[in-house]
């Protein structure tokens, strides 16, 4: 039961993704064609709110609800950020969905996206298989 918080956050997040049409293939098309501010507004304001929250957490040295000190992991640069980022970007424009929206679309009743999700899992698996041979 201590994990119950996570599906609740997920549920609220999923509702926001659907209601703001972030999961819409059309919205992603519009974004990449620079024909609407909608997606830029969402991602931009999400970053601003995230940034301010993290600043406040650091400034006031807030702790987790169970009293642990909050640790933010450092992300180290590797060339996979570039190569993988480009591959994901190409795929994002095709599917019109990053991983979060894939889950929300399935919940919304687009059953065929289950195939897309399986394919994404397969992509992750193939990355794991060839990881040592890929440039990072």
């Amino acid at each position: 039961m201590r994990n119950i918080k996570y599906p609740i956050i997920g549920m609220l997040f999923g509702i926001v993704l659907i209601k703001s049409e972030v999961v819409s293939w059309f919205r992603i098309q519009e974004m990449f064609r620079l024909q609407s501010f909608h997606m830029y507004g969402i991602i931009g304001s999400a970053i601003v709110v995230g940034l301010i929250s993290v600043l406040l957490i650091r400034r006031f040295r807030l702790k987790t609800i169970s009293g642990e000190a909050i640790i933010i992991q450092v992300k180290k640069f590797h060339w996979g950020n570039v190569y993988g980022g480009l591959i994901f970007g190409l795929g994002w424009a095709i599917t019109g969905a990053c991983p979060g929206p894939l889950f929300a679309q399935i919940g919304s009743g687009f059953w065929v996206i289950i195939i897309t999700l399986f394919s994404a899992i397969a992509g992750t698996w193939v990355y794991g298989l060839f990881r040592d041979k890929l440039p990072h």
Binding site: K75, H78, G80, N81, V82, Y83, G84, G85, L86, I87, F88, G89, L90, G91, W92, I94, T95, A97, C98, P99, L102, I115, T116, L117, F118, S119, A120, I121, A122, G123, T124, W125, V126, Y127, G128, L134
Partner: peptide, 14 residues
């Protein structure tokens, strides 16, 4: 193919 690229690319990108 699109889904594969999303899964492969995101993990490669971290």
């Amino acid at each position: 193919i699109g889904g594969f690229m999303v899964g492969f690319g995101t993990r490669y990108a971290g």
